[in-house]
Structures are given as C-alpha cells and as structure tokens.
Amino acid sequence: MKDPYGLSKASIPISYAHLLLEIMVEKGFSASEILHQSKIPLTLFNQLDARITPIQWSRLAWVSLTLAQDLGLGYQYGLKLRLTAHGPMGYALMSSPSLRYAIELATQFFNMRLKDYKIDFYEETQRSIIEIKQTHPVISQHHEQAETLRRFFYECLMIGVVQTAQSLAEHDFSNVELQVDWPEPPYHEKFRHQLPRILFNQAKNQVCYPSSIIDLPTKMADQTAFQQALAQCEAEQIRFSEQIQDIILRVKTELLLVPQKGYPSLETVAQRLHMSSRTLRRHLNLTGVSYLALLDEIKYQEAKKLLFNSDMEIQEIALYLGYIQPANFARAFKKWSGMTPIQFREKKQKI
C-alpha cells in the first residue's frame, strides 16, 4: 500500500506522546489502556529517543479525545507544552539570545520534530507573524474525525508557540493575537481567560506579535549553551534525515542470500554496518519498519523471481532460500502473496 505522506514512518518524538498521556493520567485515565487502544507498544515509552508514526500519533490523539469527552484537549496540551519536550531544539530555544533567534531557529529545525507541519516567519510594518501550515491533510475515512484532529493539532501547536515565547521572555503577551481558519468551538469560552486573543474564520493560521516583542532578550540567554545546543540540533537533523532515512537501504544491501543457508541475521547485518544489534533495531524502529519485515520483503522478491523465471521445483526453491521444511516456505509465501507457491506459478504461466 502506498504511503505518499510517510504516515507509517516513525517521525514524531515520543516526548510529545508522553505529554498527552500525562494530561490524560491527570484526568484519571489509564496510560496503559490508552496505549493499548492506540496500538502503541509500551516499550517505546522507555526509549528516550524513540519516535512514533503520524498514524500512531493521530490514533493516540483520537483515543484521548474520545475518552476525555473534552474537545478542549488541544488547548490544554498547548498550555502545558514544555520547552524540554522539544529535545535539543528546546534547549537551543531556551539559550537563544532573543525571541527572533528562537523563532528563526524553530523554523529551521521544526521539520525534524513534526514533519507534517511547516513554520514560516515574516514581518510586516508593525507585526511579526509566525504562520503554520500543514504539509498534507489529516487522513481519515470520516470527515468529522479529520476536522476534529486537524483542529486539535493546530491548537496544540499554536498555543504551544505562545507558551514557548512567554517562557522565554519577560513581557506582557496580552497583545499577541492568533488567527485560525475554523469557527469558534463551543469549548473556547471555558479557556478564554488562559488564552491570547483568537480570531476565528480567518484565511490563515497565524500567531501575530507586535514587532517590538520579537527582539526582546530571552531570560536564559547563554551564548555558550546556545552554540552547544545548536550543534546538537544539527547533529539530530543529520541523524534523522540521513542515517535514519537511509538505514533501510543500507540493511537491504546487506541482505544477500547464501544458497541453502538463507539470509544473514540481524546481528550479522549490524556487525557489517559497524553498530550493535540494539542500535540497528532502534534505528529501524525510528523508520517504522522491523528487520523481519525487510527480510520478508527481500525473501518474497527472490521467491517470486525463482518461481517465475526458473524450472526449480517448489521444494528446491524452499531449500535454496534456506527453508529446511518446504511447508514453512509455502506458509510464508501465502502470507506474503495470498497464494501458495504452486498457485502463483500457475497464475503466472497463464499470463
């Protein structure tokens, strides 16, 4: 199945999911039950640098919204969003010389935290504007669910942006204004006193600051700490965009068949890639795939080629691919293709 938006690739830091679970636990709900309903492994939450897929994040948000019966959950999330949830980027924001530096840094590195949204920053005569855009629509079979999730994600982000600025600089932020493209929801009145002014039914989703605010120094400005955090951001960006993204190709390159013996183990591949098996497994988890899934893909491709282009008997092909029992090969092939090897070969011969 095609995945044009990369929704099945792990790209969202686990820290964002931690915060949502924290809010739900404070409301009296069970974290383990929410994770179970969201189909997210509990083990991921014990890995500091783990990431979840956009599909898992959407499912977690929807389960939480449904259980809480509180559509103001996006406001609550944004109001509680801590700088430390942003990892190295959060520490760089804290030590930035000014709000302007912090905003420009966020626009540069935001895509490595939430690739499904884009931040633009520009200035007008008396206003400085942060505009947030989706890089693709929220995917759901139900229009109402998609709209609810879309609003939830935007609320988390936009309120979170304002909270970040307030925690960075000493200033009265009462003249900050949010513009959003959806109508005023029923729960807005409940949170009005905690929020900046919000204009509904606007053309774009923007956070608007008076220009005088943008060049305010931050409370924890520290040039040395800023440079160190910036270097960590750059390292994370390289690791995420290159090493993690390319790890699938690198593993596939090492999955070479030794006839009658089969394919190398995860431990062998990890050794060839000069890393531990634990590190390789973690890198693959970050892309949303497993070693076994990649191995099945390679085996399936090789099996199809042998069934279609050779005169080898089914039993010979099974042994060639490393299956001691031909029945195990037949079961595996049916799982991959929905057909037995014999049915596949007969169908190809009729074409």
Rank of each mutant, 00 (worst) to 15 (best):
V289T: 15
G338S: 09
Q166H: 02
S241P: 02
L257I: 03
I130V: 12
V289E: 09
D116E: 15
A221E: 08
L199I: 12
S11G: 00
E346A: 10
K118R: 14
H171S: 07
K299M: 13
L294E: 13
Q206W: 06
K304G: 05
S58F: 04
I34V: 14
S95V: 00
K115P: 15
L93M: 10
L266H: 06
S64R: 05
K305R: 14
Q343L: 06
H142C: 00
N205E: 07
G78N: 03
S174F: 00
F152Q: 09
V25I: 14
H36T: 01
S98K: 05
I132Q: 06
Y154N: 07
E147R: 11
Q179P: 00
K347L: 14
G288H: 08
P259V: 02
E316A: 15
I214T: 09
A17D: 01
Y122P: 05
Y300A: 07
A106V: 11
V176I: 12
L249P: 02
A231N: 13
D215P: 01
V289I: 14
T287Q: 14
C156Y: 04
Q237C: 10
F333C: 01
T84E: 15
K2E: 14
L149M: 13
P137G: 06
R281V: 05
I342P: 00
Q145I: 14
T279G: 00
